[in-house]
Amino acid sequence: MARKAEAKPAQSNVPELTKEQELSAYRDMLLIRRFEEKAGQMYGMGLIGGFCHLYIGQEAVVTGITMASKKGEDAQITGYRDHGHMLVMGLDPKGVMAELTGRQGGLSKGKGGSMHMFSNEHRFYGGNGIVGAQVSLGTGLAFAAKYRGDNTVSISYFGDGAANQGQVYESFNMAKLWNLPAVYIIENNRYAMGTSVDRATAQGDFSKRGLSFGIDGEQVDGMDVRLVHDAAKRAIEHARSGKGPYILEMQTYRYRGHSMSDPAKYRSKDEVASMRAERDPIEQVKNRILEKRYGTEEWLKEVEAEIRAIVTEAADFATSDAEPPAAELWTDIYAA
């Protein structure tokens, strides 16, 4: 029953985005793509240490979901593949890149690294390094929303790998038991590091993972930002209206290895190439922008230049900024 990653034909009758939404989605996704390419290059140059998990290929997921959420009000939390989430939520690309290089101007003062960045202001709660832990934490953010009655929802992202962790189901159980405003996004990119979904999971339809708790779910083409956005609207509305948690399985794909040091030997080059060529989330939006005359080639080039400038500025800052002062070793351990 091996299920191969396949390049599905684009669906017809999909809910369309407005012109503004398409343009903004294009810009957000391109920022992630160019930022991550730069991060990959800088990792190769030894400027970024440790682990560096790139989001290239999965851009439509966080972009479509954030578009359907109340930015700055709804809480979001994810695992360690987190750069894209921060960029789309509006965190400063310079601060993100400087955190990757471990500099004092990094979002966590250089003390967190690629996997650990947060922002109370943007309601982004990481950036969590232990696979699956963010699901309980995100459910706690939903608990707080319900406790306060502030009408916000909590959106927790986790991968097909994390979906096999026990605490995910402990959290599902309590989220439904207490009808918490929790939206669970399973980013199924088909590989938990080097282990394909087929080799790791008895139930490969992740949208059904909440059924025994009475949590509904949907499988969504996570390469098409229109479908992501449409499903996210339903899921978020469900949670916000007091009906409790909802699961979206985003069928997506990462082009790069699990982390920068992963050569990705566990899948064929053809598989990656066909996904890139036929299902690329950014190319899809770009083609629609041109087809529908939402923007010209000229406009696309301008956006490309604008994004390139943002990324270059981030990279320059991240390489010229000072390392944190030694005194930072001892700060932020105990809260005042």
């Binding site: 939390i77 709660y125 832990a133 706690g140 953010l141 707080a144 402990e170």
Partner: peptide, 16 residues
Amino acid sequence: EHGFAGIAVGAAFAGL
């Protein structure tokens, strides 16, 4: 325990 400890920590992140 694993689940509710995590939920409580998440609630604490949100200021409870």
